[in-house]
Structures are given as C-alpha cells and as structure tokens.
Design a binder for these strands. Structure first.
Length: 354
DNA sequence: AAAGCGGGGTG
DNA sequence: CACCCAGCTTT
C-alpha cells in the first residue's frame, strides 16, 4: 500500500543506514545470544510494557529454571508466578504457561513458525506474533510496539493519535514497505534499539540518529511533538487496612481471587475501608473469614501506585482471639516459609513487620 | 473503542 | 507530581 507519504524515503538507503548502525551499536542482551524461539518468546512476553533493564535478571533466572518448553510445561502455576514475582502484569505468566503447555502437547515442544498457529496461543497478540516470526524465524513480518509507533510517527510525521486503530494500520503499511527482506530480524530489533536509545520519548538525540536524513519530523522540527496520544486518566485512590496476624511462628496469608487485579497472588488479608469503616474492621473480618481478632497497633503505611489506581494501605498488627478457620482463601503458614508464595510488591514490603 | 492489568524509572 | 514503557484480553 504505497501512498504519497512513503515516497520521500529511499528504501534501500534507509535499510542500509539503519542496519549499519545496528550492526555497530546493538545492545548485547541475554535473549540475543541465540535465536531459540522459546527464549525469544519468553523475552518478548517479559518485555511487554517493561524496560529492558528490569527484564534482564528475570529472564536469566526464568531460563535457568525453565530452560525449554518442557520444564515450563511441567511446572505448577505457583512456581511460575513465583519466578514472575515483582515483574507485574501476572496474567502474562499464566498465559505463557498455558500456551507453552499447548505447544508441548500439540507441537512436540516446537514453537510454531506460522502466523495462524502463533496467533491462537494465549498471550500472543499481533506484536509478539510478529516479533517471534521475525526474530526467531527471520520472516519479514512487522512487529509494531510503542517504539515502532514512536519512530515511525516521527519518520513520516504522523500527527494523528497513534492509539487509534486506523493510524496503527497506516504505520504497519509503512513498516511493510521499509522492512528488510534479507534481514527482517535485525531490522525490527534495530528499530526497537533506535527507539530505546536515540529516538526516545523525550529529548530524542536526532543529531546522532542514523536515519535522520530520512525523517520528516526532524526535517520540520516537530519530533518533540510526536507521537500524538491522548493522556491517561488520573488514578483513583482506594484505602485498605492490611492485617498482620501472627500466632507463635505462624502468620495468616490469603490467596487473591483467580481473576482481576494481582490474580492468584498471595497477600496479607486486607479490609476495604470505604465499605467497612475503621470502626467495624473486626466485626467485618469475623463475618468474612470466621476469624475473631483484636486490632493492635499500627505498624506503618504502604502507598502503592498502579497504572489505573492507587492503594493506600494502613498496616496493623492483630491478635487472633479464635480461629474457626472455615475459609478456603486464608491459610496459616510458618513465617520462614512465606517466601515460597508469590506476593505482589506492595505486600512484599509488609514482610518487614512480621 | 475503551477499560483493566504492575512496576520501575525519569524530570 | 506527570509521563513513559519490547501489549494482550475482555467488554
């Protein structure tokens, strides 16, 4: 789909400039040591909405524990979540686990190399599908992520909101025109490295950019205004009281529901204060869990920011008066075994008060 | 098309 | 504080 915007670029020269730069400047990353499709897959899932520096230690630990689809498929969900602990967006880990089990059962552990089969795997969307096909199998498929949208919105001076579907389609058509047929793997990774190191969201280093002579945004001096996207709404704050309930060398923890926020992770039980009220915590807790408690002293406060909401948690010690223990959500565990359970970061911080 | 889903980093 | 990030799923 050639439109008038693509004509300003000499495609061959663009590829040459980009790939020469990449060959000299590419970052050495653990998932670039080989092109094992399983490792490419794991890395791409971890890198969704997550910075390279954050991912590196997680990736190395994860691959050490699950070197191939077989080890991952054989693991329990709890083990997988434990390896993902602190990385966020935990449905990624559960979807990857489920999809790898499918690959072991249906494809003998071989990651499929065609778009239809890849696209049906849990957690593999348009971006990840393109990334696996290009990076692991060297197929000329676009892999449109935030970096590509930013780089291309500047290259072609796209002034429409990049979160809109039609605009993504337009950028996808540009990528298809420009992508190298000889080395699509390097091409896609080069755009990403360029976006991460040169064509950054703020203060892009255009004078150091290997493709600045092809860039309409730079030519017109509007690179800082691109890409255009609507800003996120402000988060709402929700208040909780978290309870540290110890008895000798044991403490009560709770498994969160299997859907929604931080699904299937463990936490110290929390009381939603807007609904319950500070004066009715003990009564509410008994009705909810069948455990009679007395609130003791306040231990501290945790303020945790998510992308869409903020938790304001007052942490209290509570004495267990009587434990009828008729609720399947909560469990008393030895304090020295608490690190076996996957906790969200907000609740990891509360371990300091055990 | 919009909302839900984590966490860390930067200025 | 605002804004950013190698997205996908559900509604």
């Amino acid at each position: 789909m050639m439109d008038e915007f693509i004509k300003h670029i000499n495609i061959w020269q663009f590829q040459e400039d980009l790939l020469t730069w990449y060959d000299k400047n590419k970052r050495e990353l653990p998932w670039r040591e080989d092109s094992d499709p399983y490792k490419v897959w794991v890395s791409e899932i971890m890198l969704q909405q997550t910075k390279v520096d954050t991912v590196i230690p997680y990736f190395e630990r994860f691959i050490r524990k699950f070197p191939s689809p077989y080890e991952l498929a054989a693991a329990s969900q709890e083990e997988v979540l434990k390896m993902w602990e602190g990385l966020g967006y935990y449905s990624r880990a559960k979807n990857l686990h489920e999809a790898v089990k499918e690959v072991v059962e249906k494809y003998d552990g071989n990651v499929p190399d065609d778009a239809e089969k890849l696209g049906t795997l849990k957690g593999v969307g348009p971006y990840t599908k393109g990334a696996i096909l290009s990076i692991a199998f060297n197929k000329p498929e676009p892999a449109i992520d935030g970096n590509v949208l930013r780089v291309f919105s500047r290259l072609f001076k796209v002034e429409d909101d990049i979160s809109k579907g039609p605009v993504k389609k337009r950028i996808e058509s540009y990528v298809k025109e420009l992508i190298s047929e000889e080395d699509p793997s390097s091409f896609n990774q080069a755009i990403m490295d360029l976006g991460a190191t040169i064509c950054t969201p703020k203060s892009p280093q255009c004078l150091l950019c290997p493709v600045n002579k092809h860039c309409l945004g730079f030519e017109e001096g509007v690179q800082e205004q691109l890409p255009v996207k609507k800003k996120a709404k402000k988060q709402k704050t929700v208040s909780y009281v978290a309870l540290i309930m110890k008895e000798k060398d044991r403490v009560i923890i709770e498994k969160r529901p299997s859907e929604g926020l931080l699904a299937d992770l463990w936490q110290f039980p929390m009381v939603p204060i807007e609904e319950v009220g500070m004066n009715h915590i003990e009564h509410w807790f008994y009705g909810e869990y069948g455990v009679e408690i007395h609130l003791q002293e306040k231990l501290g406060n945790i303020r945790h920011v998510f992308s869409h909401l903020i938790w304001d948690i007052d942490v209290y010690e509570a004495k267990i008066i009587q434990n009828e223990n008729n609720d399947t959500r909560i469990r008393m565990v030895k304090t020295d075994s608490i690190d076996d359970f996957p906790f969200p970061v907000s609740h990891q911080k509360m371990k300091a008060w055990i």
